[in-house]
Simulated scan of single mutants.
Amino acid sequence: MTLSFTKMHAHGDDFIVVDLRGQVDPITSEVARRLGDRHRGIGFNQLAVLLDCDDAAARLRFWNSNGSMLDTCGSATRGVADMLMRETQASSVVLRTNRGLLTCTRVSEQGISVDMGKPLLHWQDIPLAQAMDTHLLPLPGSPTACSMGNPHCTFFVDDLTQVDVAGMGAKTEIDPLFPHKTNVHFVQVIDRRHIRLRIWERGGGIPLGSGSCCCGAVVGGIRRGLLDDTVEVACDGGTVTVQWDGLGSVVLTGAVESIFHGTIVSHFFQA
């Protein structure tokens, strides 16, 4: 067996796409982990697998580079949408993830918007270990929490340069408050329409960007009354725009880019 893949990135958040429509899916946790190894594999923040779907163009299954699964990935969803819209010459496409049906729209040659769905704000939906107000968590720094399909914990800081992202991120990710662990964001508000964001990603460490984390960070800032409903988010690897009216779906918009195509050789799938 050999499999073709496409390597892509969105503001530095890199991922690979494997199209398995009409094929058997050979991707396991171990295969995903080996593919994600930046020295012995391909290397990525996430792997997106395209599968057949009756009610959408494709169903997406996501893997982290450590071999764990995740329910949503805003960057890879936009990357797949870009590929499928080019394939069909369409201006929009609907994809199914564990978050449900997500509508993606082309806004420019490289720019893709995705309706990421409504944020989940109740403690049981994130989930947290016990009942509490998710607007203000009982942790040092008083972060806020939500879920965009994956758990997100957002700290607001005065100066990002003074934050130990790796130390605080790793510690918060595995805090007992988060039974499924959590993504961790550190946000410096520039003004009501601009933030600077650094991320500790659950199962991945410090990425250059993350679409779902950008969404979670903006949701937290809007809930705190710090931000307007349209925000430009500057990550280490570039910028995206996040829109949320406080009630409905979160819309993520930004550029995606294909880097190269390749083939995974058959012996890679052998134990």
Rank of each mutant, 00 (worst) to 15 (best):
F269N: 06
G79V: 11
V17W: 05
H185D: 14
L95T: 11
L177M: 07
E30C: 09
S113T: 15
S92W: 02
A271G: 13
N183E: 07
T103N: 12
H135Q: 13
C215F: 03
H267A: 06
T161F: 03
L208G: 01
M85P: 05
E173P: 12
S65W: 12
V107C: 00
V163T: 14
V187A: 06
G149L: 05
T161M: 14
G141H: 04
R224D: 09
V240C: 09
G117T: 02
L226F: 08
D14E: 13
S249G: 11
I199F: 08
G246L: 11
P119C: 09
D175Y: 04
Q270T: 14
T172W: 10
F155K: 10
V157K: 05
L101Y: 09
F268G: 04
S91H: 00
L101E: 04
R40G: 06
I42R: 00
G12T: 00
V49H: 07
R33Q: 14
E109C: 00
V240F: 01
I264A: 10
S91C: 00
R223Q: 14
G216P: 01
R96F: 07
M83R: 15
T154H: 02
R21W: 02
E201N: 03
R40L: 15
L101N: 11
N183F: 04
R106I: 00
V265M: 12
V240I: 05
L60F: 07
V187T: 00
F186H: 07
I190R: 05
G220K: 02
W200G: 11
I206S: 05
D125T: 14
L121V: 10
Q23K: 15
W63K: 11
L50N: 04
T6W: 11
D133Y: 01
T239A: 14
Q89K: 12
G221R: 09
G216C: 01
H9P: 10
T72F: 08
T105C: 00
T103Q: 13
S212D: 09
R40T: 13
K118N: 13
H185N: 15
G79F: 08
K181L: 13
S65R: 15
P143R: 06
V24Y: 01
I174Q: 15
V231Q: 07
M148P: 07
T239D: 10
R192P: 03
C213E: 03
Q89C: 10
A170N: 15
I206P: 05
V189M: 06
P143L: 09
P179M: 04
V233H: 05
R96G: 11
S29Q: 13
P143F: 03
